[in-house]
Nucleic acid binder design. Structure first.
Length: 214
DNA sequence: CTCCCGATAT
DNA sequence: ATATCAGGAG
């Protein structure tokens, strides 16, 4: 596994994706939303928080406030109270308030559909932008979250925690049409088998492709 | 790099 | 007690 070439990486990750697809055939976004804006808010809330908890919060939240216009009218304190249990609630409330204003003023209430525009929104980084592009707009988005960072390193496709570098390196070896699903597969696999605290290599279907196999 | 931060599993 | 959860800004 020394000095693996780009073509060798392409071949290995293609095999890995094929296996993961068989293991997680229904892999998809686990956040609940009914519009690009709702997915944007849910993804901001998902930072360092389980999707399960985010869904509990948003199921109540989106019932009361469904779009950028309605969120814009809320105070930071009102938003904080609603999202408190997701953690980082001050920063998240500030971000939600801000993107609601920006989207109303600059984009007429419509969430922009490019990575560059999304990332310019305060509180929206590449990870969140790629989630929205891939899931709400069906535009390939390579999400590099905590699971992708961990799994890409264990598989030795990269040796860095830098998300921008990982996104760049993975984009070279994964077909564009697979970008969005790759994120979902890593999240499913990361939650069920390649768990952060204790990877379950015995039950791992791609352990034969993993240099870190215990 | 640090800070933001509650909920949960171990 | 501690690590971890679909991160982002300074």
């Amino acid at each position: 596994m020394k000095d693996e070439s780009t073509n060798q990486k392409k071949s290995r990750i293609t095999d890995i994706i094929k296996i993961l697809k068989e293991e997680y055939p229904n892999s998809s976004c686990s956040l609940k939303y009914e519009s690009p804006f709702q997915l944007l808010v849910a993804t901001i809330l998902s930072a360092q928080c389980t999707d399960e908890r985010v869904n509990k919060v948003t199921s109540v939240l989106f019932e009361k406030y469904s779009n950028a216009e309605s969120f814009r009218k809320l105070s930071n304190e009102q938003i904080e109270k609603e999202i408190f249990s997701t953690g980082f609630y001050r920063n998240k409330a500030k971000s939600i308030k801000n993107i609601s204003e920006e989207i109303c003023e600059k984009y007429d209430g419509i969430v922009p559909k490019t990575l560059e525009s999304l990332v310019k929104l305060r509180g929206v980084g590449r990870k969140t932008a790629n989630v929205v592009l891939g899931n709400a707009f069906n535009i390939p988005g390579l999400v590099v979250d905590t699971h992708v960072i961990r799994i890409a390193n264990l598989l030795k496709f990269v040796i860095t925690k830098n998300a921008v570098v990982i996104e760049r390196e993975l984009s070279k070896i994964i077909e564009k049409k697979e970008w969005t699903n790759f994120g979902h597969l890593c999240i499913d696999h990361g939650r069920a088998v390649c768990i952060a605290r204790k990877p379950n290599c015995v039950k791992c279907g791609i352990s034969n492709y993993c240099p870190s196999k215990i």
